[in-house]
Amino acid sequence: MIQKFIELGEGYTDIYEIVELGNRMPDRINHSIAFYSEKSGQSVASLALIMKPTSQQKFQPIYICREGIPNPHEKPNKRFDLFKEMSEKAEITITEFTVKPSSIFPETELYYNYLIGILRTNKILTPLS
C-alpha cells in the first residue's frame, strides 16, 4: 500500500480545507496528528489527517498543512481550535509529536519520509507490505 502525504499548504487559509475534508468524511479519518517543531525561531504546528486506506487497500492519503500554524500550547489560536473541533466531532483524539522542522531537509519529500518513519515506529501507519 502506498502511504503518501498530500500537502494542502502551510496552514494559513488551507487549514479550512483540511477541516472541511474531515467534516465531510469523518468516517474515513483514521488519525488526527499535530506535529510540533521550531521554524525560524517560532514554535509551529503541522496538522495532518491520516485517512483510512482506499477500498482496494492500495493507497492511504495523509493530508497535511505544514508548519504554518502557531503551536497552540504556546499561542492558542482559532485555526488549531477548528481542527480540534473537527477531530472531536469525528471522535478522534489528536496524536501529538515533536519533530524536526522541514527546513533542515534538502527536499520536502525527505521530510515526509522522516514523518512516515515516525508514524510507522509509533504504529500509527502500517508497515510496507
Rank of each mutant, 00 (worst) to 15 (best):
G117P: 04
F105V: 00
I69C: 02
I118T: 09
K100N: 13
I94W: 04
K78C: 03
I118N: 09
I29F: 08
F35T: 02
M25Y: 14
R24N: 13
P61T: 05
F80P: 03
E7I: 02
C65L: 00
F5Y: 11
D81E: 15
T13G: 13
P70F: 13
R79W: 04
G68P: 03
T108P: 03
K123D: 11
Y12Q: 10
S87P: 02
F97R: 05
P26Y: 07
N122W: 04
L125E: 11
S46G: 04
G11K: 01
P127G: 13
A45E: 02
I62V: 07
G41P: 06
E107G: 00
Y111I: 00
I92E: 07
P70G: 05
I69H: 00
P106D: 02
I104L: 09
M1P: 04
Q57M: 08
Q57L: 15
T95D: 14
T95C: 09
K58A: 09
K52E: 11
V44I: 15
S43C: 08
R79H: 12
I62W: 01
F80L: 13
E20Q: 12
M1A: 10
C65F: 00
L21S: 02
L128E: 13
E67M: 01
I2K: 10
I62R: 00
S43P: 04
G117Y: 11
E85T: 15
E20T: 07
I124G: 08
P127M: 07
V44Y: 06
E88A: 12
Y36Q: 09
L82P: 00
F83K: 14
P72R: 10
I2D: 06
S103T: 15
F59M: 06
N113R: 12
K58H: 09
E91M: 14
S103Q: 11
L110H: 01
S32K: 07
L47S: 05
E20C: 05
S129I: 10
S55I: 09
T95W: 06
E107T: 03
I33P: 04
I124M: 08
F80T: 05
L49P: 05
N77D: 04
T121N: 13
I64Q: 12
K100W: 03
E17L: 12
Y12C: 05
G22M: 15
H31K: 14
N77P: 03
I104K: 04
S103E: 07
L21G: 02
N30T: 07
I116S: 07
K78S: 14
T108F: 00
L8K: 00
K78Q: 15
T95E: 15
G117I: 09
L125K: 10
K52L: 14
K78E: 12
K39W: 05
K58W: 02
K58Q: 13
Y63P: 01
V19L: 07
S37L: 01
E38K: 13
I116V: 10
I64M: 03
R28E: 08
N71S: 05
L21H: 03
N71I: 02
H31C: 08
K52V: 03
G68V: 00
I118H: 04
E109W: 01
T126K: 11
I64S: 08
